[in-house]
């Protein structure tokens, strides 16, 4: 617990607060998040998603089906290095936001419902520091989930679907090194997008004692954003919705990459993180034990 990490050294006249080294606090937070069974189950299931997709696509290829429908799915056949990008582009729509929301819900609302947050708030630990440690826990486990998906996706793709490089949507073939770079860009971009949503979830999490509410509100935000972006008359609202950035994942498989939608998406994520983070911080400041 972070609260225990703060050490008090009392003098007769002055009270000197010596902080625990940040590295140790972050490590203990991470250990705590990763020890929860639901986190491990969630990570395991996410890691399986690309494997299941790869098996499905391999069966479809073997039975000679042409991948009608999703344009990227058609391209994945016989093009294994594309599988992690395809899997992440699918997961970013629902599975990863769900994971981010769950982690953020556990971080503050979950602690609060167990009564453990009270102890931390009472302890002489900066509230900002407490929030930062919690946010770090959420962010690094989210990143871990994304990296895990990319790795299982690459292994499944290369083993089942084959291909030593990557065939882009533009019809060019990239060597293995560059293909790896594209996967890395996808990991960074997708992690940023999930962080944006997790920051909003963390803000909700700071307000409530019920983790379920956090998950519901966050998924509600995703669904409402999706509905709003589907209404043609509300096209003008599109550029501010979280979901808009998710479509840009497809840009990564084009050659040459057009960076502007990706940069816009990353900036949009940063704005959401700023909003979510500042609201969460202000709530943490005013929240009493």
């Amino acid at each position: 617990m972070t609260a225990q990490a703060a050490e008090l050294v009392g003098g007769t006249d002055t009270l000197v607060v010596r902080r625990a080294p940040l590295g140790r606090v972050l490590r203990s937070e991470l250990r705590m998040v990763l020890r929860r069974p639901r986190t491990l189950v969630g990570l395991g299931l996410l890691g399986l998603v690309p494997v299941v997709m790869g098996i499905g696509i391999a069966i479809a290829t073997a039975s000679g089906e042409t991948g009608e429908g999703d344009a990227m799915a058609a391209l994945v056949m016989g093009n294994g290095m594309l599988l992690p990008i395809f899997a992440l582009s699918v997961a970013v729509v629902m599975l990863l936001p769900l994971t981010g929301a769950m982690l953020a819900a556990d971080a503050l609302a979950g602690e609060s419902s167990h009564g453990t947050l009270r102890g931390m708030l009472m302890a002489p630990v900066g509230r900002g520091r407490l929030l930062a440690v919690k946010a770090f826990g959420v962010a690094s486990v989210t990143l871990l989930a994304v990296v895990l998906m990319a790795v299982t996706g690459m292994i499944t793709g290369v083993l089942l679907l084959g291909g030593d490089g990557m065939l882009t949507a533009s019809g060019t073939s990239l060597p293995f090194g560059e293909a790896l770079g594209r996967v890395a860009i996808t990991v960074v971009y997708v992690a940023l997008q999930v962080w944006a949503l997790a920051a909003v979830a963390l803000a909700v999490s700071a307000f409530t004692d019920h983790p379920l509410i956090v998950v519901v509100v966050t998924l509600g935000l995703v669904i409402v954003s999706g509905v709003l972006s589907a209404i043609p008359a509300l096209d003008w609202i599109d550029p501010v919705l979280v979901t808009t950035s998710w479509e840009a994942v497809g840009e990564i498989v084009r050659d040459p990459i057009s960076w502007s939608p990706l940069i816009d998406g990353a900036l949009r994520a940063a704005c959401y993180m700023l909003i979510g983070g500042s609201i969460a911080y202000s709530r943490m400041l005013t929240r009493d034990g």
Partner: peptide, 19 residues
């Protein structure tokens, strides 16, 4: 707390509109 919330939210919203 209020200042932080207002400033952060405002900056974020302005950023979104700029994008």
């Amino acid at each position: 707390a209020l200042t932080v919330a207002a400033a952060g939210t405002a900056a974020g919203v302005v950023g979104l509109i700029l994008i």
